[in-house]
Computed example of a mutant assay.
Amino acid sequence: MFEVLAWNDLMAALMEDFGGLDPKDRNLARRAFLEPARPEPLYGISDASEFRHHVVMELRATLARYPADPAVTGLVDELHASPDFARLWERRDVQAAPTLRKTFRHPVVGPVTVDCDSLVLTDRDQHLVLYSAPQGSPDAEALALLNVLGPQATAAVPR
């Protein structure tokens, strides 16, 4: 449930080097709702509120499939500490609109708009999320620069 299990250097440069985090801190739901207020939304994404809404709907669906799973119930209980989560949870929405594009406001290369594809691995209850930009676009050039800079180049930049 929103655990970042694997990443490459480009993702680490675009978002964060998850390898430097405790595994519990690699949970995007926790990061979206429980982190102290930031000057920018989570990773500077353009759809932070939509992402939070998506998290709540996915967790509601997961809880319906696994009502006795302590990991699921524990995460939902933990996230209720966030007033935003509690408010969205009470809405009882169950259908998320697919996210097709996302813009990251990156502190080094500026805005990077990517297409998002999510492949569902149903037998594992996992999603493989792929970000890409059209070849030759300014966004692809920004991703190429981040690929050269690597995760260490942006690690020291406050996010």
Rank of each mutant, 00 (worst) to 15 (best):
L5F: 02
L5Q: 10
N8E: 08
L14R: 10
D17V: 05
F18Q: 03
G19S: 09
D22G: 00
D22H: 14
P23K: 00
P23Q: 00
P23G: 00
K24P: 00
R26M: 12
L28W: 11
L28M: 15
R31E: 11
A32F: 10
F33R: 06
L34Q: 09
P36S: 12
A37T: 14
E40Q: 14
P41M: 08
L42A: 07
L42W: 05
S46Y: 13
D47N: 14
A48E: 13
E50R: 11
E50V: 10
F51P: 02
F51H: 12
H53F: 03
H54T: 13
E58W: 06
R60N: 06
L63Q: 15
R65N: 10
P67M: 04
D69S: 11
P70Q: 08
A71P: 01
A71L: 13
A71T: 11
V72E: 03
G74Q: 04
G74R: 03
L79W: 06
H80T: 13
A81H: 11
P83Q: 06
F85G: 06
F85A: 05
A86T: 13
W89P: 01
R91W: 07
V94S: 13
P107G: 11
V108W: 07
V108R: 15
V112N: 08
T113L: 00
T113G: 01
T113H: 01
V114S: 06
V114L: 10
C116Q: 15
S118P: 00
L119C: 08
L119A: 13
V120M: 09
R124T: 01
Q126Y: 11
L128P: 02
L130G: 04
L130Q: 09
L130F: 10
Y131H: 12
S132E: 10
A133Q: 05
A133F: 04
Q135M: 01
S137K: 10
P138D: 03
A140V: 01
A140L: 00
A142S: 15
A144P: 05
A144C: 05
L146C: 04
G150C: 08
G150L: 08
G150M: 08
G150N: 10
G150I: 07
P151A: 15
A153C: 06
T154S: 15
T154Y: 04
A155N: 04
